[in-house]
């Protein structure tokens, strides 16, 4: 076995850990950084997921109570999309849950809210074409970035700075489960690509928060995003993905990242 093969075996080990959701956060970052450029790992990962799906069938299946279906119907009804189910008529999420037991709902409500949210992208073209020097541009844009961020902050807000290797800067502002993103210095994307903001929890799982277009090289403000678990977020990152839909896993290296 060559040294290169030996070192790649480490990534193969990480691929298994990733498929099992068993990686430590630092290993998860290493693997997610490697995955986009490695067809072998992408293929292996798909096979691992297939194998684990078989493993899932290794346990006895079990009929969930009717209240689960009722809760799904209620969530669909609350999502605002068409979704017509056969009778019985949808009940509210609260009612569905109370039919089971009274217990605090941990994530469902927040995520249903997120499902209903529409990612609104408002591009703010703030760059001043008449600025005389690049340095002055940078200084002005930095000031406007801070000004925009300041306008988003309220009591209890969390502010996470994002930085990129090529000088890109951004800030994520978290208010409850609502998220705003202010970006500076991202190249304008074409009609065949999209930017995606990702959240990584302290447990290492990565989820797309939302996708957006960059319409100018100035500041870009993205509002009405939602995180699934506001308390558990460890890292945010932005990637530039091919296609017009956010993939379920990032396929490109991070443009900017920031630790919460």
């Amino acid at each position: 076995m060559t040294a290169r093969e030996t070192s790649h075996e480490l990534y193969e080990q990480l691929a298994v850990g990733h498929a099992l959701s068993a990686l430590e956060p630092e290993d998860e970052l290493v693997f997610l950084g490697h995955l986009p450029g490695c067809a072998a790992c992408a293929g292996a990962l798909g096979e691992h997921f297939d194998t684990l799906a078989h493993l899932a069938y290794g346990v006895a299946s079990e009929a969930p109570p009717l209240s689960v279906l009722e809760g799904i119907r209620a969530g669909v009804a609350e999502s605002g999309r068409s979704g017509i189910f056969p009778a019985p008529a949808p009940v509210s999420l609260d009612e569905a849950r109370s039919r089971r037991q009274t217990r605090t709902v941990r994530w469902s409500t927040a995520v249903v809210g997120a499902a209903a949210s529409v990612v609104m992208v408002v591009a703010l073209v703030l760059a001043n074409e008449n600025l005389k020097s690049h340095n002055r541009d940078v200084t002005t844009n930095a000031a406007k970035l801070q000004q925009t961020v300041a306008s988003l902050l309220v009591d209890g807000s969390r502010k996470i700075d994002l930085t990129g290797a090529s000088g890109q800067k951004g800030v994520v502002v978290v208010n409850g489960d609502s998220v705003s993103l202010v970006m500076q210095g991202l190249p304008v994307n074409d009609h065949n690509s999209i930017y995606v903001l990702w959240e990584r929890s302290r447990y290492g799982d990565v989820r797309p928060v939302g996708s957006f277009d960059v319409l100018s090289t100035g500041l870009t403000l993205v509002n009405n995003l939602h995180v699934a678990d506001k308390a558990g977020i460890k890292t945010f990152m932005v990637t530039h993905e091919a296609g017009r839909k956010a993939p379920s896993l990032s396929t490109q290296p991070a443009v900017v990242t920031g630790e919460a």
Partner: peptide
């Protein structure tokens, strides 16, 4: 478990477009 399953299917409802059949079943 009920919460988890409910959440999974609501994620399907919300994000079904993310399913890529070329990557698996």
């Amino acid at each position: 478990a009920q919460d988890a399953v409910q959440e999974v299917f609501l994620t399907v409802w919300r994000d079904a477009h993310r399913f890529d059949s070329t990557r698996g079943g």
